[in-house]
Amino acid sequence: MLYHLLIPLQDLCPVFNVFRYITFRAIYAAIFAMAIVLFLGPWFIEKMRRLKAGQTIRVEGPKTHLKKEGTPSMGGLLIIGAVTVSTLLWANLKNVYIWLVLWILVSFGCIGLIDDLKKIRLKDSRGLAGRWKLVFQILISLIFGMVLYKFDLLDTRLSVPFFKNLHPDLGVFYWPFIVLVITGASNAVNLTDGLDGLAIGPFIICAAVYGLFVYLAGHFELARYLLIPHVKGAGEISIFCGALVGAGLGFLWYNSYPAEIFMGDVGSLSLGGSLGAVAVIVKQELLLLIVGGIFVVEALSVMLQVAYFKTTGGKRIFRMAPIHHHFELKGWPEPKVIVRFWILAVILGLLGVSTLKLR
């Protein structure tokens, strides 16, 4: 909105020329989103407390988590609101990619909201049935792909990290691949969200790395120099990624151990889905396996645990899945698990950035 209001004034006052620059707007989108969360955080936490919108803890989980019962949840609403407002304020709203990523953020957030409301009202930690979550996620992801196709923005080729000339074309199989990336990222972040600040920390790192990649991919000369796919107009998504980083930092202020509020499924599903959508647009879907390695490992630990449990008649690989609970039950204090996972996320983020030159 500011972009459209102030750019025409650059002839009258040259200072408004700075709004032409994506880097300037991305930085201030981050600052603005963080300010919204920090300012509204105490009010929102108190509001959720009065509404008795507290977290329901799984009885089969670690016993140390039972004390978290009733901690205000659905903090994802605050994140979504801050990201949406900040993006609309600082981005070029004529860019179709902006509306696509906001579509994923808000629609996946709606799925999570339904899930959270069922948990809170019925006091049932299971929430919305998994099959219905998946159905809605698939439909939303397909609509996302259809819009890309309608605007002739759908590229079925993949960019493989560390390989400059390897671009396999999936053809019609790219459609289920879109669904896999977006729903997979959404559910992986959701599974990681089990400890105070555990999910939002690595997410901030992922959003920052992809903010860099979308900026580079949207710049023709830089994309050609770095041998990454050039996606015309994708640079504008840097504003969205900046807002994600800022809102995430603001939320971490209240979500760090011991957490005053949890993001809930409304937050984890929407943030993960939006990360997958950005990866698809910028043609760095496989990079998500590296940069989002924490989320990948968390999701794999659940799948392996379930598969092994069913095939061996009740035996387990881990003491509990997702894997962060395994380390808790081994005796690691919760803050140690969280910080060590953050450290690994930083390393993976740097590894992802290194693929710009190692190819």
Rank of each mutant, 00 (worst) to 15 (best):
residue 263 M to G: 08
residue 2 L to W: 09
residue 308 Y to H: 15
residue 67 K to C: 09
residue 313 G to M: 10
residue 345 A to T: 08
residue 323 I to T: 11
residue 123 K to A: 09
residue 339 V to D: 02
residue 249 L to G: 11
residue 350 L to D: 09
residue 53 A to S: 15
residue 217 A to G: 07
residue 240 F to C: 04
residue 277 A to D: 03
residue 4 H to L: 04
residue 62 P to R: 08
residue 354 S to G: 13
residue 28 Y to D: 00
residue 158 L to M: 07
residue 315 K to S: 12
residue 303 M to E: 04
residue 266 V to C: 14
residue 82 A to E: 01
residue 293 G to R: 05
residue 75 G to L: 07
residue 190 N to P: 11
residue 339 V to E: 01
residue 336 K to D: 13
residue 192 T to Y: 06
residue 308 Y to S: 11
residue 244 L to F: 09
residue 191 L to Q: 04
residue 279 A to Y: 02
residue 327 F to N: 12
residue 357 K to H: 07
residue 98 I to Y: 00
residue 237 I to E: 00
residue 188 A to M: 05
residue 332 W to G: 03
residue 82 A to H: 02
residue 260 E to C: 13
residue 135 V to Q: 07
residue 60 E to F: 00
residue 179 V to Y: 11
residue 314 G to L: 05
residue 39 F to C: 15
residue 256 S to K: 13
residue 23 T to M: 07
residue 91 A to W: 05
residue 133 K to P: 12
residue 82 A to V: 07
residue 294 I to D: 02
residue 264 G to A: 10
residue 344 L to G: 15
residue 31 I to C: 12
residue 262 F to D: 03
residue 75 G to H: 05
residue 257 Y to S: 09
residue 219 H to E: 15
residue 335 P to H: 03
residue 267 G to P: 10
residue 130 G to P: 06
residue 76 G to M: 09
residue 44 F to H: 04
residue 14 P to A: 08
residue 132 W to R: 08
residue 63 K to V: 15
residue 190 N to S: 09
residue 193 D to C: 06
residue 198 L to Y: 01
residue 325 H to V: 13
residue 148 L to V: 14
residue 244 L to R: 08
residue 323 I to F: 04
residue 186 S to H: 11
residue 289 L to F: 07
residue 57 I to C: 09
residue 242 G to K: 07
residue 254 Y to E: 03
residue 142 L to T: 09
residue 254 Y to A: 06
residue 191 L to Y: 00
residue 15 V to Q: 01
residue 75 G to R: 08
residue 242 G to E: 02
residue 279 A to Q: 09
residue 345 A to W: 00
residue 296 V to D: 02
residue 31 I to D: 03
residue 100 L to Y: 00
residue 243 A to H: 12
residue 353 V to S: 03
residue 68 K to P: 10
residue 291 V to F: 01
residue 76 G to W: 06
residue 33 A to M: 05
residue 195 L to E: 04
residue 161 P to M: 08
residue 71 T to H: 06
residue 288 L to F: 08
residue 338 I to A: 12
residue 98 I to K: 01
residue 4 H to M: 02
residue 359 R to P: 05
residue 60 E to D: 10
residue 65 H to I: 10
residue 298 E to V: 06
residue 286 L to I: 13
residue 43 W to C: 13
residue 30 A to R: 05
residue 323 I to E: 03
residue 79 I to A: 14
